[in-house]
Amino acid sequence: MAEFMGIPLPVLFGQLLIGLFNGAFYAILSLGLAIIFGLLRVINFAHGALYMLGAFAAFLMGEWLGLSFWVLLIAAPLAVAAFAALVERLLLSWLRGLDPLYGLLLTFGLALVIEGLFQWRFGVAGQQFPMPASLSGTTILGPLILPHYRVFVILAALAVCLLTWAAIERTRIGAILRAATENRPLAEAFGFNVPLLMTATYAFGAGLAGLAGVLAAPVFQVSPLMGTNLIIVVFAVVVIGGMGSIGGAILAGLMLGLAEGLTKVVYPEASNIIVFVIMAIVLFFRPAGLFGKAA
């Protein structure tokens, strides 16, 4: 069997694929965090809870309405986005102009409430979510074993990230968003409805989290606590990438997923903490993050 540095190639490629798969989630989630932080100056601690909500929305709508995976892929994120828009209007908008730490604390409290309520209603055990039949196969290419669903998630995540990036960099709405991020009073003076833009931005970021939740549902189980540990890893990813750049968030997410996958091959015991170790190292040498501008 082909080997690389003593590691069988199928094992190595398998872990790298899983790493890239996890990295896809990191990328979508940290992208949402970065967009929200850019305009609202809020670190959205509820991002993990919104991710969980996306998975549950898909699970429940699938159970009750019998919707197909492809419909859920659109419907569930929209539901999460609608919920998030309410949250922004009713809660977050009260914190404008305050220290960003308050936004972190508010969304932390929100995450506790949401996750607590779901835990109360559904218990901690995971719910099975069926994988779409059209994606349940596997292709074997030499040493490469490719489960279709995982490949689909990676490609879908890349597409979503690129589309988001293009929308922000190349469209008119994106230009307004960037203007408001750069200088809010000036954007308002030009007559743009910045509060509405903020609500929309939060809802969009939350929708991305919801989408990640739906994508995760068939592979990981749908459980009330599926987002709690994930969000902390994603925070580390964001610290590593530097919150300033959209591209940085995406790249850092994918790279750290890969790093995690590699660690699983080389030294499995450390795979839980490798992201945090990398964060500490990056902070030590480049406090602003890999892609961030100095604060």
Partner: peptide
């Protein structure tokens, strides 16, 4: 490690480091 960043990043860094300690 954590004081190399300020404000909100400080909070996130301490959270991440403490999660690492949790796993350890």
């Amino acid at each position: 490690v954590a004081i190399r960043r300020q404000g909100i990043y400080f909070a996130m860094t301490t959270l991440a480091l403490s999660q690492m300690a949790y796993f350890l």
